[in-house]
């Protein structure tokens, strides 16, 4: 009985904490709503930018793994000439595989990657503008630029192309997206913490008389503070749940749209990745809420 107060967290206390927290939330409803709103907005930005980053990275990876050189042949190159060029390419020690892609094959490939929308390519059927080409893989990705330059000099090759620039551009974009979202997220998080701190401060102020009585009756610090902490966490959590709803529904409908109109782009849809993004949103929401209350309690609730 003597030490009951410092250990017992009975059902009664828990009921009390929740009741107090929700009473406060209702009392400061407009502040609560704006706190939740700003938490939601910041977490939507977090979720959206995380999704953007993982998708850009996936795209970059798929481009990078298929870095290969395409050497387009001049239009007048015949079968014999083609074999000669092939032998010449083989002489390059950096080259690992060579594959001949006829113009007919190229069109077929293109159609396939367009999927349902391949009807766009229908008109090309009669006068296929695509050239014959060799698709060349090098032993290492670094060897690509040098090999490409060497191939350009071979007679009968019109043009040499490789995807290096695309990869770099893509990774560059990811870098900027990441930086911009970190800065925005940082500012919004600060604003959210500040707003929650203000909400909690109002609650503390509204209940200063009650807090005084609690202290007189011998309430422990955590008992006085917990309802306020809980109030902040509920604000953060609600914001997080709303943000998850928006981001999840938004991403699902985006996936639907992309599947229909841009079928060659594969969006990240591994549930593990998406769940961990949504999880980190909730986590940050709770963290923002707890941090906001903690600031207020430290400054305005000296118990």
């Amino acid at each position: 009985m003597k030490r009951a107060g410092c250990t017992a967290v009975n059902l009664n206390s828990i009921k009390y904490f929740f009741k107090e927290a929700f009473t406060s939330l209702v009392r400061n409803s407009w502040l609560s709503v704006s706190s939740i709103g700003i938490v939601t907005v910041s977490l939507i930005i977090l979720g959206a930018s995380l999704l953007l980053v993982v998708n850009a990275e996936k795209l970059a990876q798929s481009v990078e793994s298929s870095v290969e050189i395409t050497a387009f042949l001049k239009e007048d190159v015949g079968k014999v000439e083609r074999d000669r060029i092939k032998d010449k390419i083989k002489e390059n020690s950096a080259v690992s595989t060579i594959e001949f892609i006829s113009k007919e094959q190229a069109l077929k490939d293109m159609k396939q990657s367009f999927g349902e929308r391949s009807d766009i390519l229908e008109s090309l059927e009669d006068s296929n503008p695509l050239p014959d080409a060799f698709r060349i893989k090098t032993k290492t990705a670094e060897a690509v630029p040098a090999a490409a330059r060497a191939l350009e000099k071979i007679n009968g090759i019109e043009q040499v192309r490789y995807g290096q620039g695309v990869v770099e551009k893509l990774l560059n974009v990811t870098k900027w997206v990441r930086l911009a979202s970190i800065v925005t997220l940082g500012l919004l998080t600060l604003a959210a913490v500040f707003l929650i701190a203000t909400t909690i401060r109002m609650s503390v102020f509204a209940r200063r008389r009650e807090i005084g009585i609690m202290k007189v009756l011998g309430a422990t610090n955590w008992f006085v503070r917990f309802p306020f902490m809980l109030e902040g966490i509920v604000l953060g959590l609600t914001g997080g749940l709303l943000a998850i709803l928006v981001v999840d529904l938004g991403y699902l409908s985006l996936m639907q749209k992309v599947k229909v109109s841009l079928p060659f782009i594969q969006l990240v849809n591994e549930s593990q990745v998406i769940l961990s993004i949504l999880g980190s949103m909730i986590g940050l929401g709770i963290f923002i809420g707890a941090l906001g209350s903690w600031f207020s309690l430290r400054r305005f609730l000296k118990v």
Partner: peptide, 8 residues
Amino acid sequence: LEITGTSS
């Protein structure tokens, strides 16, 4: 009594 963690 609630404050001191007394059972209901």
